[in-house]
Design a protein around this nucleic acid. Structure first.
Length: 453
RNA sequence: GGCCACGUGGCGGAAUGGUUACGCAGAGGAUUGCAAAUCCUUCCAUCCCAGUUCGAUUCUGGGCGUGGCCUCCA
């Protein structure tokens, strides 16, 4: 569909029409994981949200022009700390978490980004960028540290709508004797003891947190690109600092044109945080629930709204998908999704609006012909739902059952004999028994069928 | 303290200057030995106050409330 796409841009805090720099070369950079711990459902939200934006962009501009870069930050204080706590080598930790991360992405039906660069593969580019910043007098060295001097960059605070005075007045910024000013942030710092290090003009050390995104976005997307995304918490200071570094190093007026931020997930209305002890990891769901249910739950509210995670949400999502599978048929080629159905996604990724349209398509498919069904399935597939076959879906549920098919069959036979003898008490007893084991009985048109709850 | 977002029926959740989606739950009915499933029908909402307007839930201002960011965080 070639209608306009609209996105809420954090730079203006308004919904804007998306106008790419070059329609034939669209660039999107999304902040990926810092690999110090297994991904949780909070991490899953941007994964799914930007996966859908990736699909929408490809739908509008074609597959080849869209480049989606999602970095992996594999050098960071949190990683060092986590490795120490777990008594493991940093490389073993990051390797393991990266593997888990990529499995979780698959579980959530996310498409693979065009590029997934790692910070540790790009230290040379970061060093180059720091040198550039020092040369241009935006950064200074002091005692093997290099800092970005924030007050040299006039547009600092524009993205997060913060005034420099307020930041300093709040004085919650890290004070350090090495800094000229408390709001300055570190570009390079020395490594002590057995911390990982790289050789640099400022001694053995490692890069500051924000630098990898500046260096790697430049490598893969250029000095200027279209979309930069991530969780709302990254707005400040991470993205603000990225803008400062990149624009000063690259002599540009623009870093990314559109900044997209997704809101947080809460657990039963409480913030999900380690201190609350309510972190839900993605892998904890794997045995219980299909990835597409998780995915569906994650897009059940608009990405700018906080999303509350609870059992009812998952139940509702599971039941909806269960219902939708009743009209499932496998597709050789996807059908064209009608423009008016697709429209909500073009309007700032309105996934709940799109889901409402799916319900309407379902109603049509239910009473309609194969073509209606194909359109419905295609529309589901577009957002990564109903990708697994009906058999796969049923098998997943089957695995959770405590009974074998033979056992169930025998019980049903017994029950039907009891029903023939009008011994309904016995029949109902057997039905309850099965129900307690997760097997649901349905008598329809004189036949008895069963399914896993 | 500074900045920002949000407040829609029992719940979740869109949209909109005039008739307020969609899902779940509820009610009634069909069906059933009873259920389940399915189908049909149906009830229920825009935080408060003022302003603009022929008309506001939607725009503006004020109030109240909730949440977020300002420090690691998706």
């Amino acid at each position: 569909m070639d209608k306009d796409i609209f996105l809420t841009n954090s730079l203006s805090n308004k919904k804007e029409k998306f106008v790419p720099i070059n329609e034939k070369k669209i660039g999107m950079y999304v902040c990926g994981p810092t690999v110090y711990d297994d991904p949780h459902i909070g991490n899953a939200r941007p994964l799914v949200v930007f996966d859908i934006l990736f699909r929408v962009l490809k739908c509008r501009y074609g597959k080849t022009p869209v480049t989606y870069v999602r970095n992996i930050t594999d050098v960071d204080d949190k990683i060092i700390k986590s490795a120490q706590e777990n008594n493991t080598f940093i490389s073993d930790l990051t390797r393991k978490i990266i593997k888990n991360f990529s499995e979780d992405c698959k579980f959530l039906n996310c498409e693979t980004p065009s590029e997934q660069p790692r910070a540790t593969d790009h230290i040379d580019l970061m060093i180059k960028m720091i040198s550039e910043l020092i040369k241009k007098d935006f950064a200074y060295e002091n005692k093997n540290h290099v800092y970005f001097q924030v007050n040299k960059f006039n547009d600092y605070g524009k993205l997060s709508n913060k005034k420099l005075e307020d930041l300093i007045a709040g004085s919650r910024v890290e004070i350090s004797e090495n800094k000229k000013s408390p709001e300055d942030f570190v570009l390079w710092k020395p490594s002590i003891k057995d911390e990982p290090f790289w050789e640099s003009p400022w001694g053995k050390g490692r890069p500051g947190w924000h630098l990898e995104c500046s260096a790697m976005s430049k490598k893969f997307l250029g000095k200027k690109f279209d979309i930069h995304g991530g969780g709302i918490d990254l707005l400040f200071p991470h993205h603000e600092n990225e803008i400062a570094q990149s624009r000063c190093a690259n002599d540009t007026e623009v870093f990314a044109n559109y900044w997209i931020h997704n809101a947080f997930i809460t657990i039963s209305n409480e913030k999900m945080a380690k201190s609350q002890g309510n972190i839900l990891k993605i892998k904890d769901f794997k045995d219980k629930i299909s990835g597409q249910v998780l995915r569906f739950a994650l897009i059940s509210s608009h990405y700018k709204q906080p999303l509350d995670w609870n059992d009812k949400l998952l139940d509702d999502c599971k039941n909806t998908i269960e219902k939708w599978y009743t009209v499932y048929l496998s597709l050789k080629t996807p059908s064209k999704i009608p423009d008016d159905i697709l429209l909500p996604l073009y309007d700032d990724l309105n996934t709940p609006g799109y889901i409402a349209n799916l319900h309407k398509l379902f109603d049509k498919a239910k009473n309609g012909n194969d073509n209606d069904k194909k359109i419905f399935i295609s529309a589901c597939n577009f957002i990564g739902i109903l990708k697994e076959t009906k058999t796969e879906w049923l098998n997943f549920k089957r695995k959770k059952s405590l009974m074998t098919d033979g056992d169930i069959f025998k019980k049903i036979e017994l029950r039907n004999k009891a029903r023939e003898n009008k011994d309904y008490k016995e029949a109902d007893k057997i039905r309850d028994e099965l129900s307690n084991k997760g097997v649901l009985i349905e008598d329809k048109d004189g036949k008895t069928s069963w399914k896993i709850k």
